[in-house]
């Protein structure tokens, strides 16, 4: 493996975020903070505790997960889409880098940015609501696995997209609705029995549930099932990326 090549790609991607710090970092932190203010501080005071946890604290893991998913997908998809769009991808494809080194550079940078943002939001949340973390190592594991998995999904979307509209299509029409309906703001126990079953088809439920368990020890589904589901998504994303490389889909005619 050429570490120097991967480091170069990684650093360039991180530098791109720093060049657009308002959009990359400040904007998601502000919008997530607004959720805390509106749902946690304003509305949350009128909602009773959820499974023994104050509503403000209850939504912290879900909001971090919401930000993590959307940012991972958008960072990684834009990261690979932009050189395809501008034509500069020629330089990467004609370099001695292997496909997996290219993925490591792009997905590593996108996941790193999401993790940095996740940490900032985690610290910011503490300004609005008190919370504790029962299982910090599992919290980090959930955070890292989710960031990597959804950055891989973003990478796939960035290769699939043939224009800016498609680039936005999946994050806006799939990721965000699934996240809102994935138990970010509620426990699925609060839903009518029928919808409790339906909502289990939403993969985000498992991510939010497992992540919330690492904070408060409460979950809608077993944390092991959550972990298994994340690993399943990761394996599926890797399989799709491997297929892209084998066929040269949208990269090499």
């Amino acid at each position: 493996m050429s570490l120097e090549s991967v480091k170069t790609l990684y650093r360039a991607e991180m530098a791109r975020s720093l060049r657009t710090v308002l959009q990359s970092i400040v904007s998601p932190v502000i919008s997530t903070s607004l959720y805390f203010v509106v749902f946690g501080a304003a509305i949350g005071t009128r909602i009773s505790e959820v499974e023994g946890v104050s509503y403000g604290a209850f939504i912290v893991p879900g909001l971090i997960m919401l930000m993590l998913l959307t940012q991972s997908v958008s960072n990684a998809s834009f990261g690979i889409f932009f050189p395809r769009f501008s034509g500069t991808i020629y330089e990467i494809l004609s370099s001695p880098m292997s496909y997996w080194e290219i993925v490591l550079g792009y997905v590593g940078a996108a996941a790193s940015k999401s993790l940095i943002l996740g940490t900032i939001v985690l610290v910011t949340a503490r300004l609005f609501v008190p919370y504790g973390i029962d299982h910090p190592l599992m919290m980090v594991l959930f955070l890292v696995l989710t960031a990597v998995t959804f950055s891989l999904l973003g990478f796939i979307i960035g290769i699939w997209a043939d224009g800016f509209e498609r680039l936005q299509l999946v994050p806006l029409l799939v990721i965000t609705p699934l996240t809102f309906l994935g138990g970010t703001f509620y426990s699925i126990d609060m839903l009518p029995p029928f919808w409790q079953v339906v909502t289990l088809a939403n993969p985000v439920v498992y991510l939010v549930s497992g992540f919330r368990w690492s904070f408060y020890g409460i979950s809608d589904v077993s944390p092991l099932v959550s972990l298994g589901m994340i690993l399943l998504f990761l394996a599926a994303a890797l399989a799709v990326v491997a297929w892209i490389f084998r066929t040269g889909y949208r990269l090499k005619p």
């Binding site: 090549s5 170069t8 530098a15 001695p96």
Partner: peptide, 16 residues
Amino acid sequence: FVTVWDTVSFSRGLFG
């Protein structure tokens, strides 16, 4: 959006 120096240095790094 990048400078001449940065983009040329980037190319060198890509080749390891």
